[in-house]
Nucleic acid binder design. Structure first.
Lengths: 246, 246
DNA sequence: CAGTGGTCTAGACCACTTC
DNA sequence: AAGTGGTCTAGACCACTGG
């Protein structure tokens, strides 16, 4: 059994979480089996019950464990463990499916922006919008056409580093420049591909697909990115695992 | 200032949560303003700091508050407060949009079920499937065509109460019969309406829309419901607010 | 420096489950 | 009755923020 290091700068509850996660992921703790009780964890890891409970509570929130009063604490179904209802990155979704994400950057420019774009980004008169046009790929096969808008000059550093978008993740780039998406609002509707999109995605004109619009906000509620994208129906299906509240 | 009742069977941390929620919802605590500090809450409500922290931590998880180390605890943006990335009920979504949900029950029958249905519901040879065919409405306007399958005889009580589906919420009915959805797996893709669907939804044949398939599982991982539904693109757009992890 | 939240302890009593 | 998780207390020290 691993031990927790009090010299480690990482908090004890966090170390305990990692130990338990590791045992779950490795299969040492199988789904629907009980993990050691709270008093047992207290004595084996030499920490207080509050510390144990903080570790367990967070793992419950993350969908790895569930508690049954009077019975014990159990490992969730693998399906529940994968529940990542709080993530929205296409790049990571592609990786989860075992494919290699990419993003061919077609256009990178500074523009005034349409009424919609200016409104979504809450631009004032003197401000412009950065516009990226991308063809997103999985294993080099085009799966989506995407146009991103960011506020300028606020996101000027992103504009400088635009070439890094070839790995596909705009959010990673934004995070590394201190533009941290905190919440993302998405709208999904069915629509017909445009002529230009059909050419880029190598599909027939008139084909149906999913059209997303998405706005990302930081902690203060300021919009930091707006995007429109099209996914051909035959190339990609949007997959969600949701946990029911309470 | 409201006080917490120690005679109240509800836990103190829960009562404190409700008080704070109330103050946020009523606008007494505006977005991006700091709530009283933890020591202040300890003295005003005469509870320990651990109790205060339990209340605040849960409100943080629920998207009502955020903490900044060294600065304080603040009220989230209204947009974040509405983040309910863990819910999947169309009925509640319609209500959130200020409309009246309804569900016209077209068919209610016991069948053997297709290969897909039997597999999704993990039916054994002797078991059947309950099949409901519904036209879901908002303010009496059809917005989706839905077919639900439940395992029989496990969900026999639901079959008896099928007529109650007119209020629209199958999940409510399931919960009241001890069939509690714990996680739901959804797949969304763009598709063309079928002839029969077009008639029921009063739209043109060939129109594009969103096709959902969804499977609900209980805590033990057993499938308890499977459904297929079609939303015409022009009638409904699927709206999600997501919080970014970490 | 004072004030904030972050981590941690060593207890206590209660409610629920199982035997 | 014994074991489980649920709630609660009264402390303590630390890390981060601001004047």
């Amino acid at each position: 059994m691993p031990t927790l290091e009090r010299t480690n700068p990482l908090p004890l509850y966090y170390q305990l979480k990692e130990v338990l996660k590791q045992q779950i992921r490795s299969g040492h703790l199988a789904p629907h089996t009980a993990i050691p009780s709270e008093p047992e964890l207290v004595t084996s890891y030499h920490v207080s019950r509050a510390t144990v409970r903080q570790a367990l509570s967070e793992l419950v929130h993350e969908g790895l464990l569930y508690r049954l009063h009077g019975k014990g604490t159990f490992v969730c179904e693998p399906r529940v463990q994968q529940t990542q209802s709080e993530l929205t990155s296409l790049t990571e979704d592609i990786q989860r499916r075992g494919k290699r994400p990419g993003g061919l950057l077609l256009v990178s420019e500074l523009i005034r922006g349409s009424e919609t774009v200016r409104k979504q980004l809450a631009l004032i008169d003197s401000e412009q919008a950065i516009r990226f046009e991308r063809l997103r790929t999985a294993d080099d096969i085009p799966i989506a056409y995407e146009v991103d808008y960011l506020p300028y000059p606020r996101a000027a550093s992103i504009y400088q580093r635009a070439k890094e978008l070839s790995d596909g993740s705009l959010y990673n780039l934004m995070n590394s420049e201190g533009l941290n998406p905190y919440i993302v609002e998405q709208k999904i509707r069915a629509d017909i591909v445009t002529v230009r999109e059909a050419e880029l995605l190598r599909i027939s004109p008139g084909e149906a697909g999913l059209r997303f619009t998405s706005t990302a906000f930081d902690l203060t509620g300021s919009p930091i990115e707006y995007s429109e994208s099209f996914f051909p129906g035959s190339q990609y299906d949007f997959h969600v695992m949701l946990r029911v509240a309470n």
